[in-house]
Amino acid sequence: MAEIVNRVANSKLKTFDLEEIYPEGERVAIDISQWLENGFILREKEFRVQLKSFNWNHYTDKYVAIHCSTDAVLPAYTYLLVTAHLSGIAKKVVQGSLANLELVIFTELLQQLDTKPYENAPVIIKGCSNKPIPESAYLLLFQQLEKVSKSVMFGEACSSVPIYKKKK
């Protein structure tokens, strides 16, 4: 009887799992309509007073997305004032939804990606994840890997979909 050999483990195939670079930390959203009169009207003086008296410590070491759930028309500085109170407290602050927050986090991570280990190698981008990886993160990752790798596939080693192969 022949010995069973794991050809995938012995191959030059490199696997990239976005979950492995997923930064830990709670993600939270702040709705600024809570500080607006009737949820719509910004009165700067009252707004500043409310921000100053708010307990910002709830956001220590958290990733924060600031948004307004109403159709209030707000001056651009509104989000800056909230961000100023989170500065030095939160890990990261963005304007928008929690989905926007994840995209910003991954964009920054992937812009700093060391691609040397993937040079001229066949790479598979692992597709299944248990963490909320934004779909756009896969596109950003592909764009980084395409520049250096021999080929890029998506999925699992046993059932991958070819995406790119370097021309000879």
Rank of each mutant, 00 (worst) to 15 (best):
M1G: 11
M1R: 00
A2W: 04
I4D: 01
R7E: 09
R7D: 10
S11W: 09
K12W: 06
L13P: 10
K14M: 11
K14A: 13
K14W: 01
T15D: 02
L18W: 12
L18K: 04
L18F: 01
E19A: 13
E19Q: 06
I21F: 11
I21M: 11
Y22V: 08
P23D: 05
E26G: 09
R27D: 07
V28P: 03
A29V: 06
I30V: 14
I30P: 14
D31V: 10
S33E: 11
L36F: 00
L36I: 14
E37K: 11
G39Y: 07
F40A: 13
I41S: 07
L42E: 14
E46L: 14
F47M: 10
F47N: 02
R48S: 12
K52V: 00
W56Y: 00
H58L: 10
Y59T: 10
D61E: 02
V64I: 14
V64P: 02
A65E: 02
I66K: 12
H67W: 14
C68Y: 12
L74M: 12
A76G: 10
Y77V: 15
Y77C: 11
Y77L: 14
Y79P: 15
V82A: 07
T83M: 14
T83N: 11
A84I: 02
K91Y: 01
K92G: 02
V94E: 06
S97K: 01
S97G: 09
S97F: 11
S97Y: 03
L98A: 04
L98E: 05
A99I: 09
L101N: 00
L101I: 00
E102R: 03
E102N: 07
I105V: 11
L109K: 05
Q111F: 08
Q112S: 00
L113F: 09
T115Y: 05
K116H: 10
K116E: 13
P117F: 05
P117I: 05
Y118I: 13
Y118D: 06
N120T: 00
N120F: 04
A121Q: 15
I125C: 04
K126S: 07
C128D: 14
S129N: 13
N130Y: 06
N130P: 01
P134W: 12
E135M: 12
E135V: 12
S136K: 15
L145I: 08
L145H: 01
K147E: 08
V148R: 06
S149M: 06
K150L: 08
V152M: 03
V152C: 01
M153T: 04
M153L: 06
F154E: 01
F154R: 00
G155A: 01
E156V: 03
E156T: 06
A157T: 04
C158V: 10
C158T: 07
C158M: 01
C158D: 06
S159V: 04
K165D: 01
K165Q: 09
K165I: 08
K166E: 09
K166T: 08
K167R: 12
K167W: 13
K168G: 10
